[in-house]
Structure formats: C-alpha cells, structure tokens
Design a protein around this nucleic acid. Structure first.
Lengths: 229, 229
DNA sequence: GACGATTGTCATTGCCGTGTAACACAGCAT
DNA sequence: ATGCTGTGTTACACGGCAATGACAATCGTC
C-alpha cells in the first residue's frame, strides 16, 4: 500500500529533507548517493518511483536515467529529475531519456510531493483523461458514461456518481456516512439507509453483466468496491 | 502538419519546460507572458490550441478565455487551462467560460501532451477538409451542408452550428451553459432553456433518418452527441 | 415595406429519479 | 434455539428536470 520512493542524491541535507517529507506523506523512502548504489538498491527491491538528481559524482543523473530505461527491470519505473535552475538545455536531453517530470531546485517539499503523486497517479492507469478502468468496467468522466466491455450501461445520476466514487476509490470500505459525504455532498441531510437503496440500484444496473458482486457489503462497516470476488 | 500551440504563462520555467516537451512531441510552440501578448500572437498567426495559465498578471486567464470566445477569430480554438490545485469552483468557472479541458498543476509533461492530443483529436474528427463524418451523418463545413447517407438534410442556421459543434465534439457531455458559449458565442445572453428547444429542433430534423437518438440527454448534466446508443 | 423563415421565451405536460417507509431476510450473539 | 441487529428488497409518492407546442419578436430577402 505504501509507495516506495528511491532518492538518488549525493547531498545529504537534501536527501534527509526529502526523506522526511516523503515519510510524512506516508511513503517509504530509500536512498542512494551515486549511480552504483542506486542500481544496487533497485536490484534489491524495485521502487515505485525514482527521484534522480541531475548532478551526481561519477555517472551523471542523465546517464543513469538512460541506463535505467534500457534495463528490463527498471524500464517501467517513473523518474522525476531534480535539476538546478537554468539547466534548460539539459531538460531536452532528459525528456529524450524518458524522464517523466522535472522539479527545479530549490523546490518546496510540498510541490515535490504533489508532483510525485501526480506521476504515481498516472502510472496507475489514470492517464488524466478522466477515464477509469477497473475489472471489466470503464467509466468515462467527460462523456458521463459507463461501459461494460463494449456495451454502454444505462445508469441514473446518483448511481453514476456512486459508481464513479467507487471506481476512483476501490478496495476500500466506506461507511454510509462517508458515502453520503462524498457522493451526495456534505450539506445534504438524508437518511443513511438511503445508501442501501442506491447500492441496490447500482447492483441492479450492473447485474446484466454479472458485475454486481463488485459492490460488496462489509457488515457493520459499510460498502466496498472491488474487482476481486 | 505540425500543430501550433500557444502557451500563455508568466512563469518562465514552466513555459520553457512545456515548450520543450511540445517540440519533442512534434508540435510548434509559441509563447506569451500575458493577455495582451497572447492576443497579439493570435492575431499574427492563429494557433491550433492555446494553453492558458489561470493566474496571469493583469487580465486573468479566465477573463482572457471569455474574451477569446467572443472574438470570431479565436472562437474555434480549443483552450486548455492550467490551474493550480484549487477548488472545484475553478473547474466549473473554466468550463462555463468555454474551456475545453483543464490540467491541474503540478502536472507531468507526459500528461499534458496526452491531454493536448486528446483535445486536438476531439475538436478535429476533421481531416483538414472541413468535412466530418460520424455514424451515418456527414457535415460539410465549407459547403455548410449536412447529409444523411446520400440525402441532403434541410437544417436551419442555429441547428447547423449546434450539430457542427456536436459532431466535432462527440462522446462528451456539455452543459447548457457550455453549449451556449460554444454555439451561440460568449457575448450573447440567452436563457439556458433555449438550448432545450434547439435540441428539440435538431432532433426533429434528424428524425426522418432515425438519427435523432444520437442527441442524448444526460439528466442533471446536459447533452451528449454519440454514435452509440 | 411585406413576407416567410428563424429564433428566443413561456406555460404546460410528462416522465424520470429520488427518498422514505415497511417488510423480509440473514448474520451474530447469548 | 431465540432474539436482536443489520442489511436486502420492494412499493409508493413527491419533486424536479426535461420535452413539447404555441406565440411573439426578430432577421433576412425580395
């Protein structure tokens, strides 16, 4: 559940600062001081994302990025480059090397975390287009539509919002009160049992495709949306 | 055949980063630091798409977007808004102003490129000839005519513009306000319900060919044009 | 300036979606 | 087993949004 981030940076002060910020944001931080240490750390345990300093002793960050892109093991790992201001030329090279994003020093940890999250989000199937796909279901935000395979699924407004919330927050239990907050909006007063009814309606709309068991009851706690039975 | 993108952004570092990413993706990048420079750049050479920062010195991005929608010259240019992580309010206002999409900062360059391509593709089903074909309907921009199969479809001016917008922006929901912005133009004040009436008239003109169900109602959201039922 | 075409607004109608209550059923405890 | 609590299911009535047709104003054309 926790994302593992590898920091490749020779300057200890920056490394510590970033590691602290990462842990505070609920991520696991590993670190390496140079290219060789980085490759060892990766082969030992593959991180979810790599923060790569541009200026490294020995093998440069750019060179390391290229190398990582060549290796089968590390090809899919997103990379965020840390570059000093005014190295614009370098950015071109970085983009060509397949780097996912840049953060310019000096940066605020808040911005860095936000960028990391953005990149992670994208690497998890949310390409930013507003389309989410999960377990045979596809929900298209801009089109306001749901597809089961190739078929368009007829669905009402509230069931749509409910399903949208579930698909963007899967594999997690939500109480009726939480669902009311997120799907109905905080300023509405509605009976909690109303949720049950809409859960029922959502299941009924998914039934023709045998996808109704994705909406799961967690007795005493609430409901969960899951792709696995 | 290279697409020309105009970046309107006051922060040089973001501008440069985006410009490099664009060029790498095979697009031409022009830039402007504020609203006035942007308008000059547009009048000099019309871009295929505009990247517009929400926060601009002087005239805000939102205001500029409204202004561009009012001008005949720039009405058809797709706009992607760059907004700081903020409220849903921003998104709503932006969409109401006739913006085609918005991207939240910080974004990865890859995500931005993906969005740009999506918008260009969408607002273009057009192969350059100005003729768009979709689901048995063909609309000829230069000739200002509509065909259902081999038959010419008699259609009024407003219904024509409405249909043209729909066919160049299919598979997506548009609120009444958005349709007013795109089809009527931002400087007219008209009741939202008027859209209903023209939707009705458009459906009636398509009825003889049983194509009226391509114009779909999305309760609580707006209307959508789609080839699939 | 007259005519038809086109457009925007309104009032009415119709229908879909929603919330609630009532009842049936299942899980869990003692 | 028995009772209790929590959930599934259905029915129903209300509210609200959208569809529709009629009308008046406006536009464009001859």
């Amino acid at each position: 559940m926790h994302k593992r981030i590898l920091i490749v940076e020779d300057e200890a002060s920056i490394r510590d600062m970033v590691a602290f910020a990462l842990r505070k944001a609920g991520m696991d931080a590993a670190h390496a001081a140079d290219a060789r240490a980085a490759q060892m750390a990766i082969s030992e345990r593959v991180p979810d994302l790599i923060l790569l300093d541009w200026m490294l002793p020995g093998t440069s960050g750019l060179e390391l990025a290229r190398r990582l892109r060549r290796e089968e093991l590390s090809r899919e790992i997103p990379i965020i480059m840390l570059t000093a201001r005014g190295e614009e030329m370098d950015r071109v090279n970085g983009l060509e090397a397949g780097v996912d994003d840049y953060v310019i020093k000096p940066f605020s940890t808040r911005e860095l975390i936000a960028r990391i999250k953005a990149v992670l989000r994208r690497s998890q199937g949310d390409d930013g287009s507003g389309v989410v796909e999960l377990g045979g279901l596809r929900i298209d935000g801009p089109a306001h539509r749901v597809f089961a395979g190739e078929d368009a699924v007829p669905i009402g407004p509230t069931e749509y919002r409910l399903l949208f919330f579930f698909m963007t927050h899967p594999e997690r239990v939500y109480s009726r009160a939480q669902l009311l907050d997120h799907v109905w909006g905080g300023s509405v007063y509605v009976e909690e049992r109303t949720v049950d009814v809409h859960i029922r309606r959502l299941r009924k709309t998914l039934e023709p495709w045998k996808l109704d068991d994705m909406v799961q009851t967690v007795r005493g706690a609430g409901y969960r949306f899951s792709s696995s039975t």
